[in-house]
Design a protein around this nucleic acid. Structure first.
Lengths: 210, 210
DNA sequence: AGGCTAGTTGACCGATCGGTCAGATCCTGT
DNA sequence: ACAGGATCTGACCGATCGGTCAACTAGCCT
C-alpha cells in the first residue's frame, strides 16, 4: 500500500489534446527512483505504486523496464551531445572553453538526476543502448577536454568534475545541505569549482570572467 | 554456470591454522560485486558462483546479505574514523590539514571500492547500521573541513573531492584509462587535485609541499 | 446505436530472490 | 576407532521480480 503521489486523474483526461500525460508522470517517477535507489533496486511495481497506476499500465506505456530507462535518459544524452558537438566544432580558445563550462553547468542543473543515474550505474547497465551511447559520449568528452598531452592531474580533474558534480548535485543531499540551495545560488559556486577543474592553468582559480 | 575464480581449495584447507580463508574470499568477491554492479543487483547466488561455493555456504559464513555488507565495509569505516579523529584532535594549521590530505589519500587508495560502495549507494541502503554510521562520519568530515563560515564554493569543493574520488578511482575505469595507472603514479596527481579542493585558499594550487 | 481505439487493470507465468534446514563430508582430539 | 565440531551443500520455502494476456472501460467517429 503506497499513497499515490500523482492521483492519475481517474483514467479520464479532461481534454483529449493532452499527449500522454501518464507517460510523462511515469517517466518522472522512474527517473527519481532510478537516481535515488538505483535501476536494479527499483521495481516496476514500485514505480506504479508511487505514480498511482498498476504495473500493467507501466508496461503498456513502455515495452520493458529497459525501454523505460532509455526513454528516461534520452533527453539528457541528446542535450549532452549538443553541448559537446558545439564545443568540438569551434576553435579552442579560453573563451570557448569558458562557454563550454557554462553550457555544461546548464546541462548539469537541468539533468542532474539523469547524470547521476548513468554516471554511477553505467557498469551495471552495460549493454543497454542508451547507456553505451552515453559511455561513448563521456569518452569523447574526456578526449576533447584532455588532449593527448594532458597531465595525469588534468585527467584526474576531469574525472573529479564529472563524478563530483554527479555526487554533489544529487547524492550530496544525503549528507550535506548543499544541494538544497536554489539553483541561482548554486550556479556561481558551481562555475567557480568547475572552472578550476576544467579550465587549463592559463585561467586562474578565481577568474573575473566576462 | 560460472567458472569459479577461486577454486575453493576443494573443501580441505591444507593447514587448520588458517582462519576462515573462505570468509575472506567471499568478502573480497562481495566487495568487488557491490562496488561494480551495486548491492541490490548483486545476488548471493552471484557471489557464490564467482567464489566457487554454494549460496548456502555464503549464508553459513554470514548471517544475511546485510551482515555480509556490514563485514565488508567495516574495516574501511573504522579506518576513516581513525583518520578523521586524528584530524579533529589536532589544532588546525596548514601542516595538519596537509597531513590530513595525505592520510585521506592513503585511505582512498586502500579502500576505494568500499568508498565507492557507501558513497554512491548510501541512499538505497539507509537503515543498515554500517551505512548510517558511515553517513554520520561523512557529516562530521564535512563539518570539520568546512567551518560554519565556509563559502558555498568550499562546501561544493568538499563534495567534489568526495564524489570525484569515488568516481575517478573506481567508476572512471569504465570510460577513462586513469585508474589503470599504478598507485605510485596516481598518488601525486591525487594529492595535487585533492589539495586544491580541500586545502583553504591560503595554500596555492600547486604548493611545493614538504 | 455500434464499432474503434486507447488506456487501465487483475490474474497469471516462469525465474530468481533471500533465507531455512536437514543432512553429507571432513578434520581433529581422545 | 570414534565422537564432535566445523564446513559445505542440495532441496525447499514464501515473496517478489519482469513480463504476458484477456477483459473491461471510456471517449470518439460515423
Amino acid at each position: 500500500m503506497v499513497v499515490p503521489i500523482l492521483p492519475a486523474t481517474s483514467a479520464a483526461p479532461p481534454a483529449g489534446g493532452i499527449r500522454s500525460q501518464t507517460g510523462a508522470d511515469l517517466r518522472q517517477v522512474a527517473l527519481t527512483q532510478f537516481a535515488s535507489v538505483g535501476f536494479a533496486a527499483t521495481s516496476l511495481q514500485n514505480i506504479a505504486d508511487i505514480a498511482g497506476f498498476s504495473k500493467s499500465s507501466v508496461l503498456y506505456h513502455f515495452a520493458s523496464k529497459e525501454m523505460l530507462l532509455e526513454q528516461v535518459l534520452t533527453p539528457a544524452i541528446d542535450q549532452l551531445e549538443v553541448v559537446l558537438d558545439r564545443f568540438v566544432t569551434e576553435p579552442e580558445t579560453i573563451a570557448t572553453r569558458e562557454r563550454f563550462v557554462d553550457d555544461f553547468i546548464d546541462f548539469l542543473l537541468e539533468f542532474r538526476l539523469e547524470l547521476h543515474t548513468f554516471i554511477n550505474q553505467a557498469q551495471s547497465l552495460r549493454g543497454i543502448a542508451i547507456i553505451d551511447r552515453a559511455g561513448l559520449l563521456i569518452v569523447r568528452l574526456a578526449a576533447s577536454i584532455c588532449h593527448d598531452d594532458a597531465s595525469n592531474e588534468d585527467r584526474l580533474r576531469f574525472g573529479f568534475a564529472l563524478g563530483g558534480a554527479a555526487y554533489s548535485l544529487v547524492a550530496g543531499m544525503t549528507f550535506l545541505g548543499e544541494a538544497t540551495l536554489p539553483d541561482d545560488d548554486l550556479r556561481p559556486a558551481l562555475r567557480t569549482v568547475m572552472t578550476e577543474l576544467l579550465a587549463p592553468v592559463s585561467v586562474h582559480p578565481r577568474p573575473a570572467h566576462s
